[in-house]
Design a protein around this nucleic acid. Structure first.
Lengths: 338, 338
DNA sequence: CTGAAAGCGCTTACAG
DNA sequence: CTGAAAGCGCTTACAG
């Protein structure tokens, strides 16, 4: 059996609360007693029971991260591992506990979240969009569960705490960049229609294309997998009105485009320019530097964790900047139209 | 304030332990009381405080996973995200809590592990090799901390619980496959020398090469990154005695080899055969199916989690099969020597 | 600076 | 089938 505070107290010849003070507020204990108690702690290899401390303090020190492992996209994406790594590092640095959850089925996971919070297993949750449905979000709001979403939710963006990359801006600057190179027929491999990522990118693209009537955008929906990017790119590149440039929602899709271009013997950037939205990590694999929008998405985890941490520790919340700035990073995958 | 068991008891007009029974052993409660209590639970939106339950039951339901996020290799590798996904899924399915940790500095993390266990924050730990040093392992053993390592540790393999892929076998069957195709000069991009992965692969390779004196193996050490694979492959392929095939420790290295081959205008498999050890996920990106050794490494997380779960739940441990079987998966990246 | 008392929210025997 | 009592390991006021 592990030794308890009482064991230490007996051995040191003091009361339990003196032992407690030695650990929590040593400045209130005399040097002599401190020494005695510490000796006893050492001798018994005493470690205070965290569960008991949490109970009496009525505190929770855990942040829950919900991961949608059921979808294939997650397995291929480095986005989620980057996110969890950032949250884990933040928690380890700030003496918080990071718990990871996933759902077995496609059922209502908001019930799980409510349970986790109300049973005091977690003090708050970090969720990802769009793995939580709008109904679930409303449920969480009505139950007053503390949470933050990584990725813009589909509804109530004013009332729901979230952080996201500025995808609208990302869409705009990507297309602007291509236009500058003279491209007027541009393919657009977007994400799935149920993601706000896709809506936002399209909004950014449209904002620019509206100003340039001769611009021809050819948008395809993908599920953000390599395979799908490859197939949709092939379709675009084989069409009669072959685009001279393709804008992809992320770099995994860009790799798919490259694969299709190779197959059709199209050189990059001479025959085809490629520009990517989020750089998730796969782009590194390409034999050229991929021109892309730096979204600093690796900061999302840190911001989300910090937000939840303030909540859990009862510190006053700081202004949550909902959108991260983006900027263009020029690589070698874009060129002028010949 | 959240309602407690006493609140429910009062409202239902019963004692607290009847409420407790309603939740934990409803078969011992009369239908009538059951109904009354459940109504009160519902009315008060009562959720039993997990911390209090754990304290009185003297139980821990958490498995800790230690991730070496400090190293670059982790960020590029899909191995760790696959591992954490598997463990997370197992825990969610078995009503266990998965906690993720990382270390800030390169200091002694075994102290952290001892603390986590003795303060009863976790019931056991899943570690990865080689992120835990031999000294730390010995420390953990001497402190009797329950743990399991994913990956073969460098020492005391008989006494330390671990699961790993059968890398010796993987090395052997990869080389055998190349020999069958007539290759006699083979490059070998191994992992870093401090990993048992590398030792094991080499052992498997050597076991075969010993039987065939004319075989010329050219081994290079890499840090398992794309960049390093590319550079080492370039060296090999530019050398006077250019190998006709390259065996890489994992598929990220294989992608590096492909990049180098492209640069030198070497066709695969006509001019160069490639075979990869572990298929981590990056291989998917190649324009051909990569011949590789299927190590089923995605099972490692599940096995490790199951092992720790049995320990935590005080079930008798089942025989831990330390090595997973491997088998060759033929792709399109290997061919006969011309 | 230190200790006796009370309590955090729950469950486990023990009676009845 | 149900309740009174005791206790899990700790900390927080309250005295002294």
């Amino acid at each position: 059996m592990a030794s308890t505070i009482t064991d230490v107290a007996k051995l040191a010849g003091v009361s339990a609360q003196t032992v407690s003070r030695t650990i929590n507020t040593p400045e209130l204990v005399s040097k002599k007693t401190l020494d005695k108690v510490q000796r006893a702690i050492h001798a018994l290899d005493y470690h205070p029971n965290l569960t008991a401390r949490l109970l009496v303090n009525n505190k929770v020190r855990s942040i829950g991260l919900f991961m949608p492992f059921s979808s294939d996209q997650v397995k291929q994406s480095l986005f989620f591992s980057t996110l969890s790594a950032a949250i884990c590092q933040f928690c380890s640095q700030n003496n918080l506990i990071m718990q990871m959850f996933t759902s077995m089925s496609r059922e209502d996971s908001s019930r799980l979240f409510v349970k986790l919070f109300k049973e005091r297993q977690v003090g708050g949750l970090i969720l990802t969009c769009p793995s939580v449905s709008n109904e679930e979000l409303i449920h969480l709001l009505s139950e007053k569960i503390p949470f933050i979403i990584v990725g813009r939710p589909g509804i109530l963006t004013a009332q729901i705490p979230y952080v996201d990359v500025d995808n609208v801006k990302a869409g705009s600057i990507a297309i602007e960049h291509l236009i500058k190179f003279g491209h007027r027929r541009i393919g657009f491999l977007n994400g799935p229609s149920n993601m706000t990522l896709s809506t936002d990118l399209r909004e950014g693209v449209t904002a620019i294309s509206r100003t340039l009537p001769e611009l021809e955008m050819m948008e395809s929906e993908t599920n953000l997998t390599l395979e799908c990017g490859y197939i949709e790119a092939l379709k675009l590149l084989r069409s009669e009105r072959r685009p001279t440039a393709i804008f992809t929602a992320d770099d995994l899709l860009a790799v798919g485009v490259k694969k299709a271009a190779d197959e059709l013997n199209l050189r990059i950037p001479e025959d085809l320019s490629i520009i990517s939205g989020v750089q998730n990590g796969w782009g590194l694999i390409l034999p050229f530097k991929l021109t892309h929008v730096d979204t600093q998405f690796e900061k999302l985890g840190d911001i989300a964790a910090q937000h939840m941490a303030r909540h859990i520790l009862n510190e006053e919340p700081i202004n949550l900047s909902k959108l991260l700035e983006v900027r263009l990073v020029e690589g070698q995958s874009c060129g002028s139209v010949l």
